[in-house]
């Protein structure tokens, strides 16, 4: 019995969306700390501060969610297929960083991101 390919694509999309939420909440948690990490000792203090933030836990929950969906997808679909579709989260994260985190973009950053996605698709498909 075969699982509907559309369902697999939908699952990969949901898992990508979870990845986007994870990266955004982690980055916004770290931005809110405004901590200068230099040296091993500081890294330890920094990580302790990060895991005290609710947003970091939100990131953790969405990682687990994404992982569970991805595990299921991997057991059903070809790794190459999963990889190339999963690459759409690069574009989603770029858009979200610009709109939500207000990161400043130059044209070269958009262009680079799109090139990477095309490259990943070419690598995965061959």
């Amino acid at each position: 019995m075969k699982i509907n390919i559309l369902f697999i694509i939908f699952l990969i999309f949901i898992s990508s969306l979870c990845d986007v939420i994870r990266e955004l909440s982690l980055k916004s948690a770290i931005n809110s700390l405004n901590f200068n990490v230099d040296g091993i000792k500081k890294v330890f203090i920094f990580i302790m501060k990060v895991i005290a933030l609710p947003k970091a836990w939100m990131a953790f929950v969405f990682s687990i969610l994404s992982l569970l969906i991805y595990l299921f997808v991997l057991s059903k679909a070809d790794l190459n297929f999963a990889f190339s579709l999963d690459s759409m989260h690069y574009v989603l994260i770029a858009i979200a960083s610009h709109l939500i985190l207000k990161e400043k973009f130059e044209i070269s950053r958009w262009l680079g991101t799109i090139l990477i996605v095309l490259g990943i698709i070419a690598v995965s498909m061959s």
Partner: peptide, 23 residues
């Protein structure tokens, strides 16, 4: 490594360099 895969590798490399320079 097939020709398509090589072209993909170069596209990723070019993309990474572009993003790197934009930072």
């Amino acid at each position: 490594i097939s020709a398509l895969r090589w072209s993909g590798i170069f596209m990723i490399l070019a993309g990474v360099i572009l993003v790197f320079l934009s930072s």
